[in-house]
Amino acid sequence: MKDKHQIRLSGSGGQGMITAGVILAEAAGVHDGKNVVQSQSYGPEARGGASKAEVIISDQEIFFPKATAIDILLAMTQEAWDRYSDDLREGGLAVVDSFYVKAAGRPNVHALPLSQSAREEVGIEIVANFIALAAIAELTGVVSKAALEKAMLARVPRGTEDKNRKALEIGYRLARGAKG
């Protein structure tokens, strides 16, 4: 496996992209013991409009902290896809929300019902970000499932653990289906 992964999580403000980025970085860095850096677009756009968080995971020391050639892209909205998918490197993998994003014409794009499953199976759309993280973990192995769950549970409000765990299970299942 490649030893450096540049990951961009994008959506609209309020979809939990930065939370997802922090959890992914904490999982890979603190629990899986990898080197990580995490950054985000910060400012008015973090509240509405396109929003992104970037995570670089590597076995080596990471110097330049921003993603330049994306290995793994998550796009939760059409705007995010349009704005942030240009940096997806050839052979890179994308996970997009099948309800909001029409990402035709690119190979290796997994359109999954992230927000739809969140609404229908968990009852709240806000957990779609965790469904997405789980799908990425299942599809790419950049982070271990145990680390992901541990990091997520440490960052979510008390009393929401079951709903969030369920979101991870949905993500793993959707990704297994996508792998065929």
Partner: peptide
């Protein structure tokens, strides 16, 4: 600077 101030690392 903002780059390091808002960067997350281990």
């Amino acid at each position: 600077d903002e780059f390091i101030g808002h960067l997350r690392e281990k």
